[in-house]
Design a protein around this nucleic acid. Structure first.
Lengths: 271, 271
DNA sequence: TATGCAGTCTCTAGCTACTTGAGAGTCAAG
DNA sequence: CTTGACTCTCAAGTAGCTAGAGACTGCATA
């Protein structure tokens, strides 16, 4: 019988951890002196302790290990648990590798430009959004602004308030400066009975914009530098070995007539 | 100006996280209503929030991010921090890959044998140990027992108490059943003035056994099944893509004359 | 004007697997 | 009997939030 310090030396497990395992019921001491409370361990407990350490090394939690050691699991459940853990770890490895390449890219950016990039791309989870929208093929990209104005001019008098900033969706698979298939969307809370046509004679469609992951960047500046943010988001996506999985969106968080200039969020669905 | 809920919708960051970042000084609200305590955020805070998220995605802690955002770091420090993070992540990836292969091996073992292996190999950190030891080339492996007895017979009367179980070190690079170069070591607390020779005429050497990582297994059974544990430890080492980095040790935790039979710990230094 | 309800506030606790430390008691040797 | 090493219990700390309790605010409707 060993006292906890000796058992710690033999097993090379810290005293505090042994006490913790004992209190959790994972490795109760062989006996406890009822007068002094001293814990006494037997060498025969080493296999159990080593099993605890080995299972912990597989990434199992102490609760899971407790269940395994107390024989509460069938062989099938055990296999299932391990296969689950296997999937978890391989996902973790993939994620960490992606993180690693993000760090490497950031380092490369800093070394080449001497500073941090001015704005950052982040991956966000988008909720599906119910919208009323106008869609049109435009000759001039700047007409998007008039479409938005036209849309508001129809919605406001009808008492329809967008619940989030309006945004545009660019449906062209590649960029076409002369024939731009663009949708202007106004998020709404629920399906609406009727939506009036716009003063400009456009008709609204009600639909749901699907959710999912999107690479997002805030563009804080005039529209004629939007391409820089698109370049940043494009680089980020290829760096992270993702691919574009839907049409780009631009959300107009602050309108261009604001004294501070417009602020735009570019979103690119990815998978 | 947006209330926290709206800002949460726009940024797709949970309200609780925004409050937390505010309290940490990482992203204080643009203003706080002194009467109600309501937090108000501006769209212009989105770039900072996105930078926080992007840096978090690189694996930086909020403290580190605070330092970066408050411009407390030189470009060199920033590069250093990222390079450190890079090293950390690639080590993490390596570790998780090793863990993954451990899980896969465990699964394979379970599927082939229908159960968990009876004993477990674990990786432990060994402290360097000061010992007094006897070393000899033996014709018969079973003579190790007499060497141990001989050693104790010299040490006990001289008042030298080993501070840990004695163990043997097998110095042969490969196994030789007829000419076994074996060292029997007794751990001691400090360098000793003098150690008497044994009744059997052997002379002690004082030395330090180096520490480091070792693969360890508890063998709970008679010595003639030791090879099974050696096989298990050998498999484990190759599974984990480690290599043997020193002579094997066998620690005699419980002597073979105990009614429960001997318990032995096999240690194989690895790198 | 009253009521309701969604939103917000602060504060506390919980999550994992321990580690650290305080304050008190125990053991063996000299 | 003292000393020093060891052990005990209990509480708090770790990271980055999340969840919940109980109270207050703001806006819309009856």
């Amino acid at each position: 019988m060993y006292r906890i310090g000796e058992f710690s030396t033999i097993s090379r497990v810290p005293v505090s951890a042994l006490r913790y395992y004992g209190d959790r019921g994972l490795l109760p001491p062989d006996s406890i002196d009822p007068d002094t409370g001293y814990r006494y361990y037997a060498v025969t407990q080493l296999p159990r302790l080593n099993r605890i350490l080995a299972l912990k090394d597989l990434g199992l939690s102490l609760d899971e290990i407790t269940a395994i050691l107390n024989d509460e699991l069938s062989a099938a459940e055990l296999r299932g648990m391990l296969r689950l853990k296997q999937a978890e770890i391989s996902q973790l490895v993939t994620e960490e590798q992606a993180r690693l390449s993000r760090v490497e890219n950031r380092l490369r950016l800093i070394e080449s430009e001497g500073m941090m990039p001015s704005h950052d791309v982040v991956l966000k989870e988008m909720e599906p959004q119910r919208v009323v929208s106008l869609r049109e093929v435009l000759a001039d990209p700047r007409d998007v602004g008039t479409m938005i104005g036209d849309g508001y001019a129809a919605l406001m008098p009808a008492g329809i308030m967008p619940i989030a900033p309006c945004f545009s969706v660019y449906h062209d698979p590649e960029f076409k400066p002369t024939e731009l298939d663009v949708e202007v969307a106004f998020p709404v809370a629920t399906q609406l009975e009727a939506v009036p046509d716009t003063p400009g004679g456009r008709s609204f469609v009600q639909r749901s914009i699907p959710g999912g992951k999107a690479a997002v960047i805030i563009h804080d500046g005039p529209y004629d530098t939007l391409h820089e943010s698109y370049a940043a988001i494009g680089n980020w996506i290829s760096d992270n070995e993702l691919r574009i999985a839907g049409p780009a969106q631009e959300a107009y968080l602050i309108a261009p007539d604001d004294p501070g200039g417009p602020i735009t969020e570019i979103r690119l669905p990815v998978a």
